[in-house]
Nucleic acid binder design. Structure first.
Length: 439
RNA sequence: CGGAGUGUGGCUCAGUCUGGUAGAGCACCGCGUUCGGGACGCGGGGGUCGCAGGUUCGAAUCCUGCCACUCCGACCA
């Protein structure tokens, strides 16, 4: 992408409404525009990151055997009356009436709808286990939206739903999602720790919150620091195998958010040197809730003996839009965002220090073509502007690499290569710089 | 929903107390000089001052009502 043809409205000053660093940086870096309290337009740069995060989640869900579909944002109230949640959900649910006086709602989650879809088609235990997921916008009319995309009212969520014949296979499905989450967050460059959770309005007894550690996190967490070294399965993980040893390795050490923290247990189960008090951001939650929805909504299949069996279910959410904020909270400095490679909106920023000067333009175009061909998604700053602004903008938007090309360097046969994360700068010939980036 | 606060050009804000021709910096457009880490000069465009009533010769400013947004708290992916 050429910056002169792109849409990147960066701000030099911080909009007054933004209090936390991810919100400030998203607004300043031209990623986000607030349209109403807790409702945002994702501008091109933000949209690219959102899509990358979404794609990593999708790939790991698919790898774990989940099957993607897409359910609507609007749902019929009648469906929610079946589960009894229409009244339970309260004012947080956005309720809508259509022209026929039909009661609708903007979905805050999709347990009811997926159960309705499941029961309409699945009749045999042979179709199990089944895990269906979608990545769709949700709406929860929060009392007080805040922290930008971290607590919006409208947010993009991946939600998966597992269906199994019995509790044992249901727990195996739960474990597959647990491992998929470990992998997805790791790929994004995040340290996300699963912590035992209360299940809240979703229901059920087995549940974990996945918490990203960041100094600016919204809640305090207490954990055994050895969790930071616990291994995450590689992409060759066998989802057909028993994954309980992996889950066990992540759940046997103490880790709790402040609302469920048990100080006495913490002292009993951790050595003083292993205790770590930190702050965290919840980016995902897994639930196994048995027949909480399948029983009232009559989702059952014929078992091997022909008798009808109510299915066992779980649901598994990842806050995709929230993750973009969490990534920034976990990785930034005074100058701006520092994107982990896997989710960076562009792989490398090329700064043309003298647009219009033939030799510089030619070098930039050459680098642009080579990096594009190598799949590095370069963003070429070919705008005519003060060079200082170019450097600050590139730092702000946080691309992993910066390739700085100007007449002075070219006269000596070199360009400058900067690694955003470390600030390391090197002068070297263009072809070597490209080789370093494409690694 | 309890408490506190803010609405003035795209952004940050002054002006409101004490009513009298809407301002500054940044951003934007033009010309020129510049050009290697948020340049400079000259010229220019852009705002029914959140909305609606009211008071007044005259309202961004005073009064009433409403709306939006933000912060603290309780609640939440």
């Amino acid at each position: 992408m050429r910056l002169s043809r792109y849409f990147l409205p960066v701000l030099r000053e911080t909009p007054a409404e933004a209090q936390i660093v991810s919100h400030r940086l998203m607004l300043r870096a031209g990623m986000l525009r607030q349209e109403a309290a807790g409702i945002y337009a994702w501008l091109p740069l933000g949209h690219r990151v959102l899509r990358k995060v979404e794609q990593i989640v999708r790939e790991e869900m698919d790898r774990a055997g989940a099957v993607e579909l897409l359910m609507p944002t609007l749902q019929l109230a009648d469906l929610w009356r079946e589960s009894g949640r229409y009244e339970d959900y309260g004012a947080e649910m956005l309720r809508i009436t259509d022209r026929h006086e039909r009661e609708l709602l903007y979905g805050p989650t999709n347990e009811e709808m997926i159960t309705e879809i499941f029961r309409a088609y699945v009749r045999s235990y042979r179709a199990l286990p089944l895990n269906l997921y979608h990545i769709q916008w949700k709406f929860r009319d929060e009392l007080r939206p805040r922290f930008g995309v971290m607590r919006g009212r409208e947010f993009l969520m991946k939600d998966a739903y597992s269906f199994d014949l019995d509790e044992k296979t249901g727990r195996a499905s739960y474990n597959r999602m647990f491992v998929a989450y470990l992998r997805a967050f790791k790929r994004m460059g995040l340290a996300a720790i699963p912590m035992k959770a209360e299940s809240g309005p979703i229901g059920g007894e087995l549940s974990h919150e996945f918490i990203v550690l960041a100094d600016t996190g919204e809640s305090a967490v207490f954990l055994d620091r050895r969790l930071l070294e616990t291994e995450v399965p590689g992409e060759d993980v066998d989802y057909g195998a028993d994954l309980s040893p992996v889950v066990e390795s992540w759940t046997r050490l103490y880790a709790a958010t402040e609302d469920v923290h048990d100080a006495a247990r913490y002292e009993r189960e951790t050595a003083p040197g292993d205790r770590l008090t930190a702050r965290g951001i919840e980016v995902g939650q897994t639930f196994f809730f048995g027949d909480k929805y399948s029983a009232p909504m009559k989702a059952a299949v014929a078992g091997p003996d022909g008798a009808e069996v109510t299915v066992q279910s779980g649901s598994y959410g990842v806050g995709v839009s929230r993750l973009v904020g969490a990534l920034i909270e976990a990785s930034h400095d005074e100058a701006g965002i520092i994107w982990p490679d896997a989710v960076a909106p562009f792989g490398v920023g090329i700064i043309n220090l003298r647009p219009g000067e033939a030799a510089v333009d030619a070098a930039c175009e050459g680098a642009y073509a080579a990096l594009t061909a190598a799949g590095k998604e370069p963003l070429l700053d070919d705008t005519v502007e003060r060079p200082g602004g170019k450097f600050a903008t590139m730092d702000l938007i946080g691309l992993p690499w910066q390739l700085i090309i100007g007449p002075r360097g070219l006269a000596e046969g070199v360009v400058e290569l900067k690694r955003r994360a470390t600030g390391e700068r090197r002068s070297l010939p263009l072809d070597q710089a490209i080789a370093a980036i494409t690694g």
